[in-house]
Amino acid sequence: MTPKKRRRLFFAIALVAAGVVLAAGIIYQLGQNTQYFRSPSDVAAKMIQPGVAFRLGGLVQDKSVQHGDGAQVRFIVTDGKGSVPVSYDGVLPALFREGQGVVTLGALNETGTFVASEVLAKHDEKYMPPEVVDALKRSGRWNEGAGQ
């Protein structure tokens, strides 16, 4: 083997090794950092453990929004079949309304309340988070004509 060839082989091995390390790192981190989307009826059906972070989406139940001290707010997210109480300490997005779609990020606590760290509402009247649309379709609450 000439020195030039040996060097090339070394480069090739180094590159492959780097690629393997990268792929392993990416796959491991993906496993660590994915958050599942759950509808309120999923929460009831799948027995999600307290403390496991996920995204909860559905409609904000009518007349369920209660403001507490400071920026504390509590409301109920529903998909018609199930509902989950949510507590959140922060500013609600401008488009947060009762009866409309919402996606929240957080985890259940011991009493079954979803403690949200982030609340996302849709960008405009016409837009509904696709996950919410899907969840509503599954629970039979989605009306294609009226929603779009």
Binding site: L22, G25, Q29, Q32, N33, T34, Q35, F37, R55, D134
Partner: peptide, 18 residues
Amino acid sequence: GEKISVGPPYYAATFAPI
């Protein structure tokens, strides 16, 4: 058909060190 999202911590752990 499973809906997931990959959050900022993933990018902090992969993109940032690279």
